[in-house]
Design a protein around this nucleic acid. Structure first.
Lengths: 231, 231
DNA sequence: ACAATAGTGTCTCTTAGACAGTATTGC
DNA sequence: GCAATACTGTCTAAGAGACACTATTGT
């Protein structure tokens, strides 16, 4: 309920940060950027920054723009996580950040990332060993919990998959995210019940019997399916 | 990822607004405030305003403070909904608002509200008939959807109840929120499975057989129970 | 007695987990 | 044949909806 008498004291620094996840090599990874400015210059932190009112219609655009600057692509999935605020987050004083979390196929960004040295994937289980800027460690943990929850009742892990994938690959990605094994049969039941995927006329070898390749049917929104794994 | 070179262009107006719900007279109601300032002076809008860095440790405090100003009590339940942003929301230009939604027992605020004329409960189904400030109509609809979802798999509707309540009363409140009938038996199963409630040594009359009164066990957090109504 | 509301018992249906069993591939 | 992975069939257990049934109250 704005009333017009704002000032810098009531209008603190506002930024948008994103926790971009992918699954590769059997681990959950998060994209971090080496900071070029104070504070925390030289430390790794989340990609993000200020709104540019000329470029961004809203904060979603800000998150996408900042991610594209660092990865050259827009994430397949992007969702608001939550706002973090207070005077402990930033040594300069009270600050507010709107945090998004996002998912992407690792392959889509790997070539671009390998050409720069200030952007890299980090294993989320190895973050305790490095010092991150601001409260970004806590933000990542919160995002990870939300992703784990969402992976239990939705198909969002598919956003970490390449366009064509096998059930075995998807099972492995889900298990990496939720850190628990699931029943292959349960996954197949979900895939069938969702009616969001179709087998394509191609199989791929995987050490044993050839595996059926699947892809998302055109025009369906994966995010709109809910079903529970009761792990 | 703040970097220090902010200005008013990259740091637009930021406010915190709250959608406070209650259930009374068999309908879902939302608390609105008559605006005393431009823009939209004289129209009804959500309670909210700017952060006060001296009073608010974080945005949760801002939401609570503004709600207390209008209702004299803190809500029993408060949760971040989402951020709304863009240059269409406020005639003065780009703006950002962090929206919370909250629940309260109607009785706790009724006496205070009746003493002022710029705060009132509105039936959420009658909002189309009045003009609200800003995009507050849309914010309320989003909050209502979130509340409906949450009422399906959690016990949050209990936050709309007085301290002691019957199963019949809770059933009615849930049905008002989700706009669908539920099975009394299913509700009882949830109450038992949650182990969060206890019957007290008192019954209350309700037109037929006396009804058992329940209350929340001390020390339990209602928000931490998940179970599905498959309505 | 009867209406009204509270509360119980129990059947069915859906669905997830478990896991045995079959199918197909490379070596 | 054997190891490895893909896929299927089916039993079981949990839990929600449905609804008939019993219990207790005021009139």
């Amino acid at each position: 309920m704005p009333n017009g008498n704002q000032n810098s004291h009531t209008n603190p620094q506002f930024t948008v940060d994103s926790v971009l996840f992918t699954v590769a090599d059997g681990t959950l990874k998060v994209l971090l950027v080496k900071r070029a400015n104070q504070p925390f210059e030289g430390l790794w932190g989340l990609p993000g920054g200020f709104i540019d009112q000329d470029l961004d219609l809203n904060t979603d655009d800000t998150a996408k723009r900042k991610l594209k600057e660092k990865t050259s692509v827009e994430p397949q999935y992007l969702e608001q996580l939550q706002v973090f605020s207070g005077d402990k987050r930033d040594p300069r004083g009270y600050s507010i950040t709107l945090v998004y979390y996002a998912l992407v196929t690792e392959q889509k960004v790997s070539t671009h990332i390998s050409t720069v040295d200030d952007v890299a994937w980090f294993d989320v289980n190895a973050l305790a060993e490095i010092t991150l800027a601001f409260d970004h460690f806590a933000l990542i943990q919160t995002a990870r919990q939300r992703l784990q929850q969402k992976a239990l009742y939705s198909m969002v892990p598919v956003y970490c998959m390449p366009e064509r994938f096998t059930i075995g690959q998807l099972k492995s990605v889900i298990e990496t995210i939720i850190e628990k094994p699931i029943q292959r049969k349960s996954l197949i039941r979900r895939i069938e019940a969702s009616e969001m995927f179709e087998g394509i006329e191609e199989k791929v070898r995987s050490g044993g019997r050839l595996a059926q390749l699947y892809k998302v049917k055109s025009g369906v929104d994966i995010a709109h399916f809910e079903r529970n794994f009761s792990v």
